[in-house]
Design a binder for these strands. Structure first.
Lengths: 146, 146
DNA sequence: CGCGTGTTGAGAACAGGTTGCAGGTGGCTA
DNA sequence: TAGCCACCTGCAACCTGTTCTCAACACGCG
């Protein structure tokens, strides 16, 4: 687990030939601060709190850049907007259709399934990019029967 | 496998107290015709081929109604728009991030995984509403290593 | 410090989807 | 068969999330 600081990441960017600008630094800092997934909008708000001039297109462009470099990934949690997070955190997400609760599940749980699909269909699942959906204990219909 | 005809479905609607109108009938007919999943836009095009006056809001409203009645469900295949299909066809979808190919996989394959998640987290997965994504044999990166 | 190129901000464009409204129509009733 | 009214429709405006355009700006090499 890397748990890189914002400075580490900015250094890494610089060494890879990426020009360091205020918006980019701000986005990286905000991502490190939140630690888990955020929407572009939330990230924008956080960045603007300190850098009011940063536009939302810069947020998207920077996230795009960081994604290309493998530093950031995004996940789609159900119907809402995409959520971005640092790429050093490898797990799948499960979202409750009822209350919206998000459960993070480890690859250990999903791996056997992914392997089964690979064996049977030659298809390599990526269960991290799209959340799985369903019903949590409290919201599930019926309560277990049905 | 029901394989209901459009007339069957329209009758079913009428008996459930739903007013039968030209747009509604047209949507049901188009859904039965295509047999598999379609986007709202494609459905709109098909319906308009015979009923040029039907607006896209009627398509969405009718799909919404049919969804509420359990006759139609929709599935999100990756980043694109939602795809609708008759609800009598219960399987999960797997979409290739590379070529967009869609694989339909049977519940038999997904059930053990769903059960594992339920046992461990008390979370009842619904793997039919959102497609799983990944890489098909041809598009997978590397080819099996990595 | 000066310059060139990559980056930025502002806002418009875009895509998918939803909603409000005024007028039209299905199907019950007589 | 005609009349009525609640429900349904078409239209167009709206909304959200994301991408694009373009002139102005600023990073960082020399």
């Amino acid at each position: 687990m890397a748990a890189a600081t914002a400075d580490d990441l900015v250094d890494q960017l610089r060494h890879r030939g990426v020009r360091i600008t205020a918006p980019r630094r701000a986005v990286v800092e905000a991502l490190v601060e939140v630690g888990s997934h955020v929407t572009a909008e939330t990230l924008h708000a956080r960045v603007q709190a300190r850098h009011p001039d940063v536009s939302h297109s810069s947020i998207y462009r920077t996230l795009d850049l960081l994604t290309e470099l493998g530093i950031v990934t995004h996940v789609h949690l159900g119907h809402g907007p995409a959520e971005f997070h640092l790429a050093d955190d490898e797990h799948s997400h499960v979202v409750c259709n009822g209350c919206g609760a998000v459960l993070e599940i480890d690859c250990a749980v999903t791996d056997p399934f992914a392997r089964a699909v690979d064996d049977r269909f030659g298809f390599q699942l990526d269960l991290r990019h799209f959340a799985l959906t369903g019903w949590c204990r409290r919201c599930r219909p019926g309560g277990g029967s049905s």
